[in-house]
Design a protein around this nucleic acid. Structure first.
Lengths: 336, 336
DNA sequence: ATGAAAGCGCTAACAG
DNA sequence: CTGTTAGCGCTTTCAT
């Protein structure tokens, strides 16, 4: 691991000053072609690459964007990260991935990296803390959150999809299929200010509008994985039939596939005995044992726009989010 | 976006020198408790956080590890990244994710970030260039590749699983099931030095050992996604039955699920008309329409050990890879 | 068109 | 135990 040449070495070799070399590096005007050649030659011979560390320290601007996800193994986040990465790369940015696993403190830790200049901006694909708290970190750098909210802020920016409406539509879809006994699974805890509060509202509102009584026994909280879905199925199966729902909004395709799998194992058939509705429209959803009826999220557009928005904040240019690209859509297949 | 306090501000506020503050920051001995308190207080009041940029520039050691994957949306890589992230976090490192999408130049670009000090080390979860080339970048920082190879190097380190043996075993498994017409899909181009060369060898060797004639018509190259799998199924279906294989080694569960899905649509049944063998044992594989028989990769151990290995190189300590954790294993389900 | 010199925020001799 | 000082590699006035 040999010491790498620095700008001074290049300057010496080229018989010029560091200033000129720096100018060359930054595409300044006023350098004669002759010297340009010399510099290029020196750089090649020395196998030179400018230290991003020094550049960033001096110019006070980095090229790394932090991306917060709850876990990268959730395909929803993987696809989001993919879309973000493709876009930011165009602007010469890089992505530092941080997983929170639902932990508030981990999220704060990442936000603090803004202060330490480890990253220059943050895209929050999931959010754990309340927006008031998060907003307070915008004084350290730009933050974009992908989340639905009423929270108004000049400094904290959002890329929003209408989760409430989509959930309302999804429940309505089940109701139109004749369902009235509709269970509900969420990644949060079903309280007012938690994860998925908007979806909760959509669920409640759809029931209410249809004159269906809400049944607290039928809400399942804190579910994220295939295993969580399986656990739900087991609980569902243990309910005597008179108290058992006939449909469930799973909150994610991962949970949905777990539910379906276990239900079938337990000889409860989908959708005949139990309709299951997913969320996300992940690649495997169409290919499951019972293809999943779900709501598609516009991940590609979401990631791309989040990337463009954060870049515009970093570069102090304007960017207008295009809501028309951010629509959710029910995909009807066989599970409901 | 307010300017952040620096070490000098803290020193001034605490009425001490920057050295003492720096010592405090780095847990040096020999600071009186009284001053420690003062420093803590000053830091809090100023909302101070040390600039990682300056620290790294000065100490010439960063805390960011680059991770190269071909695409993060492939669950194999997502789980690998997850395992790596969990481990490096313990050492205070962060992960910069780079996707190559199979592009050699992208891989080189990432390796070059070592030179620029953007990252301090690289874990290559996928590899595109030849090892001779990659090895030449080790002079800029530690590189760990997760790949099987005979390439010997003092500077370039490997975390290896025996892909050849696993493929041999998988093909053997099919042969024991009575198959002799076995097709083969790979992510590479089936040449000697490409992607998956070891798997190719395993395939060829298993055929040879069983006295089965190799049929070039039955190898499908450059397949990675579910869509690629579907395309294979279509090509398979177009073969007249006398020239059609009765089994296929898909190379990945993603490709396998695509093949199975499309085959079933085309009324060719798995495994009756065509056995399909996957690779990776991804979470959805057990839950597919026809649960996939596959070979499980030890992603967790792979990620963890890659992380420990790179950390040991960065910290110049010793680390011995534990091969016993790195075994591949056939998981028999229904597709073959 | 080019260069000298100051300094970004921090660490590490060295001196006391 | 604490402070002074010289850089790490780069950008950026300010001269020339």
């Amino acid at each position: 691991m040999i010491p790498i040449a620095n700008i001074k070495d290049v300057a010496n070799k080229a018989g010029l000053s560091v200033t000129t070399v720096s100018r060359y590096l930054n595409d300044h005007p006023y350098i004669s072609d002759e010297k340009k050649k010399k510099i290029q030659k020196a750089m090649e011979e020395l196998d030179y690459a400018p230290s991003t560390l020094a550049t960033q320290l001096r110019s006070n601007r980095g090229k790394t964007i932090g991306v917060l996800v709850s876990r990268i193994t959730n395909p929803y986040f993987a696809y989001l990260v993919d879309a973000i990465e493709k876009k930011v790369k165009q602007g010469g940015y890089h992505l530092l991935i941080m997983q929170t696993y639902g932990d508030k403190q981990e999220e704060i830790n990442t936000l603090n990296m803004l202060k330490e200049k480890t990253i220059s901006g943050v895209i929050m694909c999931s959010v754990e803390n309340d927006f008031r708290t998060i907003e307070s970190y915008t004084k350290y750098g730009p933050i974009v959150a992908a989340a639905q909210t009423d929270f108004k802020s000049n400094s904290l920016h959002f890329i929003m999809t209408n989760q409430e409406q989509a959930t309302y539509d999804a429940i309505k879809f089940l109701i139109r299929k004749g369902h009235t006994r509709i269970a509900y699974s969420t990644g949060g805890d079903f309280t007012e200010n938690s994860h998925g509060a908007y979806r909760n509202r959509g669920y409640l509102k759809a029931l209410e509008d249809a004159g269906i009584q809400f049944n607290k026994e039928w809400v399942f909280t804190d579910n994220h994985t295939i295993e969580d879905g399986m656990a739900i199925a087991i609980r569902l199966s243990k309910l005597v039939e008179s108290r058992r729902p006939k449909a469930i909004f799973a909150g994610s395709d991962e949970v949905a596939i777990g539910i379906i799998q276990k239900l079938e194992e337990l000889n409860i058939h989908v959708p005949k005995d139990m309709a299951v509705m997913g969320f996300d429209n992940q690649p495997f959803s169409a290919l499951a044992k019972v293809p999943i009826t779900t709501v598609a999220q516009p991940v590609g557009a979401l990631g791309q726009q989040a990337a463009e928005l954060i870049a515009s904040m970093l570069e102090e240019t304007e960017y207008e989010v295009d809501q028309s690209q951010l629509k959710l859509k029910i995909i009807e297949r066989e599970s409901a």
